[in-house]
């Protein structure tokens, strides 16, 4: 089925970016289904994925209302190409091993938890309402991933090595969490959005607290990757979307 064309306004783009973050990370977590190391993590990963997909659905629905072109949540999720996706590069990175999945979850949740808490004060009532639900969920994701990173970092030699490697591998994707552009600045000025730069201290403090316990160190800031917000992705997103969109692209409008 052909792709949709999104009529972008600052609000539509802003909401789609957050919806894409939630959907892509939720999809990544769902890839663990049937493969998690223990039964408890099988449930935890699926539950966290479900939270994120729930957040994505609410955000896509709102983007559709803001755009007013008749696009529903499915149109945004299933009928946009990779270049139209505006998620952070961090969330599209492949699952790797369990350590990498937990480090990725920690890096995102340590950001999303204070982000949604701050967004509860958004001048946009729908975003404030979505934020009030999402922040409770992200507090759980943060705690769960933090506990695992501590356990793995302060675990065996092997688990410590893998956790440190995951941290080093994902660190270059964290710069993008705090970027702003013209669109974001317009939303910040109008009180719809929070300035992500104001979240950086909280994010850093959380990571230092967790990594201290994990006997790991925050990596040095070096070259930071960016491009996700503008639709320039790593090679991994296209493969993810191929799986996510296959059914609706092949049998348009299929329901069950």
């Amino acid at each position: 089925m052909t792709s949709i064309r999104v009529t972008e306004t600052p609000l539509v783009t802003y909401v789609l970016r957050r919806a894409d973050d939630a959907l892509v990370l939720g999809h990544r977590l769902s890839e663990w289904c049937g493969k998690a190391p223990v039964m408890e993590e099988e449930m935890a990963l699926a539950n966290m994925g479900l939270d994120l997909i729930g957040q994505a659905r609410a955000l896509y629905t709102y983007a559709g209302e803001a755009e007013a072109q008749g696009h529903d949540e499915d149109a945004f999720a299933y009928r946009r190409d990779e270049r139209a996706y505006r998620n952070l590069l961090l969330v599209e990175q492949p699952n790797g091993d369990f350590a990498l999945t937990m480090v990725r979850q920690l890096l995102y949740a340590a950001y999303a938890d204070p982000y949604w808490r701050a967004m509860m004060g958004s001048s946009d009532p729908t975003l404030a309402a979505i934020a009030a639900k999402a922040e409770k969920e992200m507090a759980y994701h943060l705690r769960h991933s933090a506990e695992w990173v501590v356990r793995l970092g302060d675990g065996t030699e092997e688990s410590r090595r893998r956790t440190g490697r995951a941290l080093a591998q994902l660190w270059p994707f964290t710069g993008e969490l705090f970027h702003t552009d013209e669109i974001e600045r317009e939303m910040i000025m109008s009180g719809v959005a929070v300035d992500p730069a104001t979240l950086r201290d909280t994010w850093c403090r959380t990571l230092i607290e967790v990594l201290d316990r994990a006997t790991l160190k925050i990596p040095e800031d070096g070259w930071m990757q960016s491009g996700g917000r503008g639709g320039r992705h790593s090679e991994h997103l296209g493969h993810l979307l191929a799986e996510l969109q296959y059914l609706q692209r092949t049998i348009p409008g299929a329901t069950w």
Binding site: L50, D51, L52, I53, G54, Q55, R57, A58, I130, K133, A134, E137
Partner: peptide, 8 residues
């Protein structure tokens, strides 16, 4: 109102 965003 849902208890969780993704409550099925």
């Amino acid at each position: 109102t849902p208890t969780y965003c993704g409550c099925p």
